[in-house]
Every structure is written in C-alpha cells, then in structure tokens.
C-alpha cells in the first residue's frame, strides 16, 4: 500500500468515526442476514431507541405543550414543577417548550446538513474516484482546500453578513462545508473497487459510467455510506450548536444552542439556574452520543469480523 493510500484510508476514520477502517470488500447481502444481526445488537437497539425517543419528543412536545418557545407564560426563574416540567427562564419562558422546539431544529439541522454533506461528498468522491485523471486532480485539490479550512470560521463570516438567519440556511451552509473527509474516503474506496472483475464485466456489457457507479460500486459500500450519513448528522448538530451558542443561530426560532447562549448571557451560571442550561446540552449529548454508539452497532452488523456471537 502506498503512503497516500494509507493516508486516505486513515482519514476515513476521524476520531469519533466508525470503529474500523471499513473493509471495502464486505459484501453486505441486504435484508435477512443484516436484519438478524441488527435485532440482536444491543448497541444499535439502545442508540436507536434514545434517538427515536428524542424524535418523538420533538414531534409531540410542541403539540402537548401549547406555549410558543418565546412566550412569557409564568413567573420567572421557577424550578421544575408540575406546571413547568423543566422550570422557567429568567423571563418566565417555559424551558420545556424551548427544549421541544429546539429539538425540532436539531433534527432538522442534522437531517438537512448531514444529508447535503453526504450528497456533496458522494458526488465529489465518486466522480473523482471513477473519472480519475485531471478531474480527480482538480476535485482532490478542492477537497484538500475545504478540508483544512475550519468550518466554523467560514460559517462565522457568512453568518455575520447574512441578515436573515433561519434554521434551513444554517443547515445548508453547514452541509456545504463539512463534506471533504467523506469525499476523500469514498474516492479512495472507489479507486480500489473500479479495477474489480465485476466492474470490468459491467463495462464490457456496455453500461455507462453513472450506471456502473450507482449499480455496481455504490451498493458495495452502501453500509459505509449509511454510517457516514449518521456521523455527518451528529457533526452537523454539534456545529449548529456551536454557531448558535456564539449567537449566530436562528434569529426567529429556538434551538438548543441558543438556549445555552441565553442561559450564559443572562447569568444562569452564577445564579445556579441549572434547569435552564442542563437540558439543552444533555439533549445534544444524548442524541449525538447515541448516534455514535448506534454506528458502532451498525459496524458490527455489517462487518462480519466484528460480530459478537
């Protein structure tokens, strides 16, 4: 293996990423077998359970609790009680209502930002890996440039000058700047797959480039692609929380990062109003942590070498 290959494969596993460098050849037979292992994998079930629970809360919360996230509904600075499950903020806003609405924003950012990043990463990675040559050189250069630029710095300067800030544009910008490691990993794997016999066979039978990529190459790393999306989802949520916390989040809505921003801004810390800043951070930690653990579980499901029997 040449050094650049080792380098590239290594980038496929950032610190928090999937357990092992994915074996390219793991031929996942979709359906039965994977499902059998999936149902018996405790990490996967546990992680999925937590994420789904939060999703349910995000969907149902605002329906159960009629208050808007920024409405002044009760006495200020109340501890959690039967009336206000998570207490109230310094201005008498319902922390639970903010939390539920913030969860919605979190899932939206993760889904949209992670999805867009996965899409761009796949397009760039497959194109570079399949076409090779000059196209590869150019795309690789682009990838390397975006890779070293700190995402937050770019988002900082964009968010400062854009005046209307909603959750959707925020997610789009996050997605547009967090794809490079995906592109590198997919490019490296496409390279190693394109010289396989089954790809040659498809080419002999007259299939076009796009068809070969989507029918022959992509299915061979479908499990990896899915796991990548989960990691991107988690990453987008964390990036959005960071942006919101700096004060560059949605101006019209509510998000978990914004809740923490408000709590710190209005000195919830010295006042000891823990119910204001504990739920949003805990929510993010549990969702993202569960996604990571779910990913380890998925890795064990898809990769026979890791299965515990």
């Amino acid at each position: 293996m040449s050094v650049s290959d080792a380098d590239e494969l290594a980038t496929a596993t950032p610190a928090a990423a999937a357990a092992t460098p994915v074996t390219v050849a793991s031929k996942v037979r979709p359906g039965r077998e994977a499902l059998w292992f999936a149902r018996r994998n405790r990490k996967l079930i546990l992680g999925l359970g937590v994420v789904l629970a939060f999703l349910a809360l995000a969907v149902a919360g605002p329906l159960v609790d009629p208050h808007g996230p920024n409405e002044y509904v009760g006495p200020p600075s109340q501890r959690p009680s039967a009336d206000f499950w998570f207490g109230t903020t310094m201005f008498g806003q319902d922390v639970f209502a903010q939390f539920a609405h913030g969860l919605r924003a979190t899932f939206l950012v993760g889904l949209l930002g992670g999805g867009l990043a996965a899409l761009v990463g796949m397009v760039v990675g497959f194109t570079a890996g399949w076409r090779g040559g000059v196209v590869d050189e150019v795309l690789n250069m682009l990838t390397n440039v975006v890779l070293v630029v700190p995402t937050l710095a770019v988002l900082l300067i964009i968010a400062t000058y854009l005046r209307v800030r909603g959750v959707v544009p925020e997610a789009v910008f996050i997605g547009l700047f967090s794809w490079p490691w995906v592109a590198r990993a997919i490019r490296a794997q496409t390279f190693s797959l394109r010289s396989r016999d089954f790809v040659d066979l498809a080419r002999l039978s007259g299939a076009g480039g796009a068809r070969i990529v989507f029918r022959e190459i992509a299915p061979n790393m479908s499990s990896y692609l899915f796991m990548t999306f989960i990691l991107l989802f988690g990453g987008s949520v964390l990036t959005a929380a960071t942006l919101d916390f700096i004060g560059l989040g949605p101006t019209d809505g509510m998000s978990l990062g914004l809740m923490m921003n408000n709590a710190v801004l209005w000195s919830a810390l010295p006042l000891g109003m823990w119910w204001w800043f504990v739920p949003p951070g805990l929510g993010i930690t549990l969702i993202v942590g569960s996604l990571y653990i779910m990913n380890v579980g998925l890795d064990e499901v898809f990769n026979p070498k890791l299965r515990e029997l």
Binding site: L238, A263, V264, L269, G281, T285, V288, G289, Y292, I293
Partner: peptide
C-alpha cells in the same frame, strides 16, 4: 471506556464548560 468515551466526544464543548463552571465554581 466505550460508552463514556462516546458520550464525551458527543458533548458540545460549551456544555461541558458550563457544567464544570457550575459545579466547581458556582456550587
């Protein structure tokens, strides 16, 4: 190590900071 490590990496930096500030400074 596995669950603790994953929870730690999933923690937003500012939240861990807030918790530490609250626990070790305020309380």
């Amino acid at each position: 190590v596995l669950p603790v490590g994953y929870v730690l990496t999933a923690t937003p930096y500012m939240w861990l900071g807030i918790l530490l500030a609250w626990a070790l400074a305020t309380v």
